Structures are given as structure tokens and as C-alpha cells.
Simulated scan of single mutants.
Amino acid sequence: MSDTGFDKAPSEAITDLSGTYAVDASHTRLGFQARHAMVTNVRGSFGEFEGTVVIDAAEPTNSKVDLTIQVASVSTGSADRDGHLRSGDFFDVENYPTWTFTSTSVEDVDQAAGTFVLVGDLTIRTITKPVRIDVTFDGSAKDPFGNLRAGFEGKAVVNRKDWDLTWNAALETGGVLVSEKIKLDFDVSLVKS
């Protein structure tokens, strides 16, 4: 059993994966986590997005990712909180309905371990900032319909103030309602085009 608690099925070698892939939104999670009231974590995700990934297994540093997120699809399990996130206090989805991520490089590739760092530009509202994402290759397989699938996990930490997402409220006991540091986590399923 792997450290995630799930067995990983045998998969093809990563060198077999060169090509262009579509992000399978129905089997992908684009998630985030923030501290709330200094005492707990609130998790959320985006349900609508599309993306293309080009994998160059012979020269992994030439690989590329382009992703567009429909920001109104945010979900944290609370309709009130989701509405606040969609408002001008945070995401302002009426004026900025999409976020984009475009990779700029792939670094620190360890093909034997299936790990690398994906670097790219994340645009939220009108602000574009670089983000470094630690990525792990989870495996690949042919699905029952003959499609080649590849799975990846990613993690990053960003400061929301870098994108001018500054709304907050002070707590009587000290501290703030929403942390500046946001953890991003991704489980991505790709289908070869």
C-alpha cells in the first residue's frame, strides 16, 4: 500500500507518455486550503475548468501546461462562504470570471522517482505571478475505452495577497479570520488526445 493509503496499479513507464493530453475535469480535483479563525482549515475546490498538457518524455523540460478555471465554480461546502468568495471582497467573478495558469518551465526532473517542479504564471483578476508546483507522477493506464490516461498530484503554497486578495477581519483574540497563506493541491487525470 502506498503512503496515500491506496494501492497503485501497475502502469506504463513515464517514457511512454509523450503526446498531447486533455485534462479530464470529471476525474480531476483542483483544490485549496486556508486557515479559518486561526483554529481550523477550510478546504475548497473548483468544479469547472479545462486544460491541455503536452508531455515530452524524452526532454521533460519541454513539457507544457495550459489551464483555465471558471472561478464561479468554487465550492467549499457552504453556500454563504462560496457566495462571499465569488463577491468583490475576494474573486469578483462578475468582472473576472476566469483564472489561467500557463507553465513557463519544468525543473528538477527526477524521472526515476516520477517527480518534478512545474513553474508557471497564475493569473487571478489582472495580476500574474509565478507559482512553483511540486508534482508527482502517479501512473498511467489504458482505460476500458482504450484511452491512455496519466495521473499526477501537485502541491504548492501561495500568498493570496500577491494577487491583491486582501479582504480579512480581525479577531477579538488576535489574529485574522482568513490566513494569507493558501495551500493548493491537485489530483489531475489526463486523457491522451
Rank of each mutant, 00 (worst) to 15 (best):
S2V: 06
V119H: 07
N41R: 07
E172V: 09
E107M: 01
R160G: 04
F6D: 10
T40M: 14
G83A: 06
G44P: 04
H84I: 13
T98K: 13
S73G: 11
A37I: 15
L177C: 11
A37C: 12
F91N: 01
R29L: 13
D121V: 01
V176D: 11
P130R: 09
R149P: 05
A34F: 09
L118T: 04
T68I: 14
R43M: 15
G31M: 02
V188A: 03
D56T: 09
P10G: 07
T173D: 06
A170Y: 05
S193C: 04
L148P: 01
S2H: 11
V23S: 02
T15W: 00
G174D: 08
F91Y: 02
N62G: 09
F91T: 01
N41M: 04
E59V: 14
G51S: 07
E50C: 01
P97D: 08
V39E: 10
N168A: 04
D66H: 11
R132Q: 13
A150W: 08
G174H: 11
N147V: 10
Y21P: 00
M38N: 13
Y96V: 00
T15F: 00
T136E: 14
A169Q: 15
R81P: 00
G88F: 08
S78I: 10
K155V: 02
R125D: 05
T166K: 13
S179L: 01
R125E: 06
F152G: 00
R132L: 06
E94A: 15
E59S: 13
E153L: 03
D3R: 12
R132S: 15
A22I: 07
D56C: 08
D56K: 05
T4R: 07
G146P: 08
H84Y: 12
K181T: 14
F6A: 14
K129E: 13
T98F: 10
T52K: 14
D92N: 15
G47A: 15
D66C: 02
T4A: 10
P10Y: 03
F101D: 06
F32Q: 08
A22C: 01
V39P: 08
V119Q: 04
R43T: 15
L17A: 04
V109T: 03
V93A: 05
L17R: 03
T104Y: 01
G19M: 03
L67I: 11
A34V: 14
A150L: 10
N62E: 14
N168S: 05
F91V: 02
Y21F: 06
L171Y: 11
V106R: 06
